[in-house]
Design a protein around this nucleic acid. Structure first.
Lengths: 162, 162
DNA sequence: GAATCAGATGCGAACCATATGCAGCTGCAG
DNA sequence: CTGCAGCTGCATATGGTTCGCATCTGATTC
């Protein structure tokens, strides 16, 4: 559950330096509030807190978000509902990093592959362009358009090859 | 949950014509029993029944297996334990086709990609070689060895492009 | 073929992640 | 400032998966 990464591109809400992000960027608390309102959602404290957590960490489970915002009196079920709302309006996306536990991330973070090691469970990341060639081949062969924004591939990390 | 596929390669336990499968093939009830014993497991009726279901269908959830073997008095928790055992000895593998519900398949079935449409939920399949190029690139770039045997990619199927 | 016992099974209940009903609270439009 | 649709906390339900335990059974031994 520790991704061993120090500072990733796309983080901005908590960072001082705003990063280049796509549409629907979450640049600051003010922008986050505006983003929520423009999506037809109220800019409540809970939602801003959840967005801040999502912005600081690449991918988190609902429980991890809840832990991070617990001191503000925000409860797990609210986190679930908030994530659900954010997902519906296209701000947040689910990733199935581990079986039986969903993770969430901002769609505005830079696209990248998630590489899940089936040995140690560690999630590492890689540039999404590594998959674009295969995605093109798959589309040509089957008509299926692979979502290359945040895919998850299983395998073995460098450390776990025995 | 209907894959709209009529007869897939690798099916053999229930089919009359044995197919070309990899090591650990499940060719017949006799072979299945031998396979189980060689893996240090008892060849019980439940296990043979579960193996037969896995052999006939490409990928199934525990509940689907349980439904299929219910008439033989085999119960859901036994199915779970059986799948767990089969997975431990390397006969069966999990795939996360849908969030919150695991699917299982025989490792001996021919390798293929699972393409999950996020729109309609349908799982289609494609040749695994479509991913080998990308897997090589990923390994070169990161040292991570992608398991290309039964990966799952999300996206949109041909029908759901709007 | 009968005895033996570790391993397998059925049954029920526990468990964990997620969803939901409801009453009270709050952002924000007017 | 006020009203109220939309949020939230709390408690409880749900759905998939796991576990404890008593019983049963496959396969080994005699």
């Amino acid at each position: 559950m520790n991704e061993g990464r120090a500072g990733h591109p796309g983080s901005c809400l908590a960072a001082q330096v705003p990063s280049i992000v796509t549409v629907m960027a979450v640049r600051s608390a003010v922008d986050a509030a505006a983003l929520l309102r423009s999506a037809g959602l109220r800019a409540t404290g809970s939602r801003l807190a959840v967005l801040r957590v999502l912005d600081v960490r690449h991918h988190v489970t609902a429980e991890e978000v809840a832990d991070a915002v617990a001191e503000q009196g925000i409860v797990l079920s609210t986190v679930y509902r908030t994530l659900e709302h954010l997902e519906r309006v296209g701000v947040v996306r689910q990733v199935d990093l581990t079986p039986n536990r969903r993770s969430y991330h901002l769609v505005s973070t830079t696209e990248h592959l998630h590489l899940r090691c089936t040995e140690c469970g560690q999630i590492s990341e890689a540039d999404a362009v590594l998959l674009t060639g295969a995605a093109a081949k798959i589309e040509q062969a089957t008509g299926f358009v692979v979502d290359t924004r945040h895919p998850v591939l299983a395998g073995r990390c460098r450390r776990c090859q025995s």
